[in-house]
Protein backbone atom coordinates (compact mmCIF):
# COMPACT_ATOMS: atom_id res chain seq x y z
CA UNK A 1 0.00 0.00 0.00
CA UNK A 2 1.21 3.50 -0.65
CA UNK A 3 2.52 5.33 2.37
CA UNK A 4 0.47 8.26 3.62
CA UNK A 5 3.39 10.38 4.67
CA UNK A 6 5.84 9.98 1.77
CA UNK A 7 8.62 9.87 4.32
CA UNK A 8 9.59 6.21 3.82
CA UNK A 9 12.29 5.37 1.30
CA UNK A 10 12.19 2.41 -0.99
CA UNK A 11 15.37 0.37 -0.59
CA UNK A 12 17.06 -0.58 -3.84
CA UNK A 13 19.82 -3.06 -4.52
CA UNK A 14 21.36 -1.28 -7.48
CA UNK A 15 24.83 -2.19 -8.69
CA UNK A 16 27.64 0.42 -8.52
CA UNK A 17 28.95 1.75 -11.80
CA UNK A 18 32.63 1.32 -12.80
CA UNK A 19 33.40 4.91 -11.83
CA UNK A 20 31.99 4.36 -8.32
CA UNK A 21 33.67 1.00 -7.96
CA UNK A 22 37.27 2.29 -8.29
CA UNK A 23 36.73 4.50 -5.12
CA UNK A 24 39.63 6.82 -5.97
CA UNK A 25 37.57 9.84 -7.07
CA UNK A 26 35.40 9.47 -3.95
CA UNK A 27 38.50 9.50 -1.71
CA UNK A 28 39.78 12.62 -3.44
CA UNK A 29 36.44 14.33 -2.96
CA UNK A 30 36.49 13.43 0.72
CA UNK A 31 39.99 14.86 1.16
CA UNK A 32 38.90 18.06 -0.59
CA UNK A 33 36.12 18.55 1.95
CA UNK A 34 38.41 17.75 4.89
CA UNK A 35 41.18 20.17 3.89
CA UNK A 36 38.63 22.75 2.87
CA UNK A 37 37.66 23.05 6.55
CA UNK A 38 41.18 24.20 7.42
CA UNK A 39 40.50 27.51 5.73
CA UNK A 40 37.09 28.09 7.27
CA UNK A 41 36.35 30.31 10.30
CA UNK A 42 36.76 28.35 13.57
CA UNK A 43 33.53 27.26 15.26
CA UNK A 44 35.02 27.43 18.75
CA UNK A 45 36.67 30.17 20.80
CA UNK A 46 39.53 29.68 23.24
CA UNK A 47 37.50 30.25 26.43
CA UNK A 48 38.42 31.78 28.91
CA UNK A 49 41.09 33.76 27.00
CA UNK A 50 38.49 34.69 24.41
CA UNK A 51 34.77 35.10 25.09
CA UNK A 52 31.87 35.37 22.75
CA UNK A 53 29.91 38.54 22.35
CA UNK A 54 26.66 38.35 24.28
CA UNK A 55 23.32 39.70 23.13
CA UNK A 56 22.00 42.67 25.10
CA UNK A 57 19.06 40.58 26.15
CA UNK A 58 20.92 37.38 26.94
CA UNK A 59 19.12 35.46 29.66
CA UNK A 60 21.67 34.40 32.26
CA UNK A 61 21.85 34.68 36.05
CA UNK A 62 19.16 36.73 37.77
CA UNK A 63 19.61 39.99 39.61
CA UNK A 64 17.31 41.60 42.17
CA UNK A 65 17.44 45.30 41.50
CA UNK A 66 17.59 48.21 43.89
CA UNK A 67 16.05 51.59 43.11
CA UNK A 68 17.97 54.86 42.73
CA UNK A 69 18.13 55.32 46.50
CA UNK A 70 19.48 51.83 47.05
CA UNK A 71 16.28 50.31 48.41
CA UNK A 72 15.30 46.80 47.38
CA UNK A 73 12.54 46.86 44.81
CA UNK A 74 11.17 43.37 45.42
CA UNK A 75 7.94 43.31 47.46
CA UNK A 76 7.64 39.55 47.51
CA UNK A 77 4.40 39.57 45.56
CA UNK A 78 4.93 36.04 44.32
CA UNK A 79 4.10 36.72 40.68
CA UNK A 80 7.52 35.48 39.51
CA UNK A 81 7.03 32.26 41.44
CA UNK A 82 3.58 31.68 39.99
CA UNK A 83 4.82 32.51 36.47
CA UNK A 84 7.84 30.21 36.77
CA UNK A 85 7.22 27.08 34.67
CA UNK A 86 10.01 25.21 36.48
CA UNK A 87 8.91 26.22 40.00
CA UNK A 88 12.43 27.35 40.74
CA UNK A 89 11.53 30.42 42.82
CA UNK A 90 10.54 30.43 46.49
CA UNK A 91 10.23 33.31 48.90
CA UNK A 92 9.21 34.27 52.40
CA UNK A 93 7.83 37.74 52.94
CA UNK A 94 8.21 40.01 55.92
CA UNK A 95 6.84 43.35 56.98
CA UNK A 96 9.07 46.40 56.92
CA UNK A 97 9.60 47.84 60.40
CA UNK A 98 9.73 51.56 61.11
CA UNK A 99 13.30 52.74 60.49
CA UNK A 100 13.91 50.33 57.61
CA UNK A 101 12.54 52.67 54.96
CA UNK A 102 16.01 53.14 53.50
CA UNK A 103 16.37 49.39 52.94
CA UNK A 104 13.08 48.40 51.39
CA UNK A 105 10.93 50.32 48.96
CA UNK A 106 7.54 49.03 50.09
CA UNK A 107 5.76 47.93 53.21
CA UNK A 108 6.45 44.28 52.45
CA UNK A 109 9.72 42.75 51.35
CA UNK A 110 11.24 39.36 50.69
CA UNK A 111 13.06 38.14 53.79
CA UNK A 112 14.13 35.03 51.91
CA UNK A 113 14.29 34.84 48.14
CA UNK A 114 15.71 31.73 46.57
CA UNK A 115 16.14 30.60 42.98
CA UNK A 116 17.16 27.05 42.32
CA UNK A 117 19.49 27.43 39.36
CA UNK A 118 19.31 23.70 38.62
CA UNK A 119 15.58 23.97 38.09
CA UNK A 120 15.65 27.33 36.31
CA UNK A 121 15.32 27.11 32.52
CA UNK A 122 16.17 30.80 31.96
CA UNK A 123 12.94 31.50 30.11
CA UNK A 124 12.65 35.05 31.44
CA UNK A 125 9.00 34.71 32.50
CA UNK A 126 9.89 36.00 35.97
CA UNK A 127 11.18 39.33 34.69
CA UNK A 128 8.14 39.59 32.47
CA UNK A 129 5.78 38.93 35.37
CA UNK A 130 7.48 41.33 37.80
CA UNK A 131 5.31 44.41 38.40
CA UNK A 132 8.02 46.24 40.33
CA UNK A 133 10.98 46.03 37.93
CA UNK A 134 12.75 44.05 40.61
CA UNK A 135 13.97 40.88 38.94
CA UNK A 136 15.92 40.80 35.71
CA UNK A 137 18.07 38.26 33.96
CA UNK A 138 21.62 39.36 33.14
CA UNK A 139 24.47 38.52 30.81
CA UNK A 140 26.31 36.87 33.66
CA UNK A 141 26.49 33.06 33.62
CA UNK A 142 25.73 30.73 36.49
CA UNK A 143 29.02 29.27 37.66
CA UNK A 144 29.62 25.56 37.91
CA UNK A 145 29.79 24.08 41.39
CA UNK A 146 30.68 20.80 43.02
CA UNK A 147 27.68 20.66 45.35
CA UNK A 148 24.04 20.82 44.32
CA UNK A 149 23.14 22.93 47.37
CA UNK A 150 25.29 25.75 46.10
CA UNK A 151 23.03 26.18 43.08
CA UNK A 152 20.24 27.46 45.32
CA UNK A 153 20.95 31.15 45.12
CA UNK A 154 19.73 33.26 47.99
CA UNK A 155 19.46 37.00 48.38
CA UNK A 156 23.18 37.31 49.06
CA UNK A 157 23.94 36.26 45.47
CA UNK A 158 20.92 37.77 43.74
CA UNK A 159 20.52 41.26 45.16
CA UNK A 160 22.75 43.78 43.44
CA UNK A 161 25.27 45.84 45.37
CA UNK A 162 24.04 49.17 46.78
CA UNK A 163 27.24 50.72 45.42
CA UNK A 164 26.15 52.87 42.42
CA UNK A 165 29.28 51.90 40.46
CA UNK A 166 28.45 48.20 40.65
CA UNK A 167 24.81 48.48 39.56
CA UNK A 168 23.57 46.23 36.77
CA UNK A 169 22.27 48.19 33.81
CA UNK A 170 19.04 46.65 32.59
CA UNK A 171 17.78 49.51 30.43
CA UNK A 172 18.58 47.60 27.24
CA UNK A 173 16.32 44.78 28.34
CA UNK A 174 13.32 47.07 28.65
CA UNK A 175 11.07 48.01 25.79
CA UNK A 176 10.77 51.53 24.49
CA UNK A 177 7.28 51.79 25.99
CA UNK A 178 8.53 50.89 29.46
CA UNK A 179 11.36 53.42 29.31
CA UNK A 180 8.89 56.03 28.14
CA UNK A 181 6.53 55.17 31.00
CA UNK A 182 9.32 55.46 33.54
CA UNK A 183 9.76 59.13 32.67
CA UNK A 184 6.22 59.86 33.84
CA UNK A 185 6.74 60.95 37.44
CA UNK A 186 3.02 61.17 38.20
CA UNK A 187 3.00 57.49 39.09
CA UNK A 188 4.22 56.28 42.46
CA UNK A 189 6.12 53.50 40.74
CA UNK A 190 8.44 56.03 39.07
CA UNK A 191 8.99 58.34 42.01
Amino acid sequence: MKSLTNRSKVVSNKQMTFWERIYFPAILNGMRITFGHLFRRKATVQYPEATREFSDIYRGKHVLKRDDEGRERCTSCGLCAVACPAEAITMVSAERKPGEEHLYREEKYAAVYEINMLRCIFCGDCEEACPKEAIFLTKELVKSEYQREKFIYGKDELVESPDPAKRVDVSKRQTKEVLEFKKDKRYKHNK
Binding site: L79, E107, P131, K188
Partner: peptide, 11 residues
Protein backbone atom coordinates in the same frame (compact mmCIF):
# COMPACT_ATOMS: atom_id res chain seq x y z
CA UNK B 1 -7.67 52.90 45.48
CA UNK B 2 -3.90 52.45 45.52
CA UNK B 3 -2.36 50.06 42.99
CA UNK B 4 -0.56 48.09 45.66
CA UNK B 5 -1.84 44.66 44.68
CA UNK B 6 1.72 43.24 44.89
CA UNK B 7 1.72 44.14 48.58
CA UNK B 8 -1.96 43.57 49.40
CA UNK B 9 -3.00 40.28 50.99
CA UNK B 10 -6.35 40.29 49.19
CA UNK B 11 -4.76 40.06 45.74
Amino acid sequence: HPLDCPVCDQA
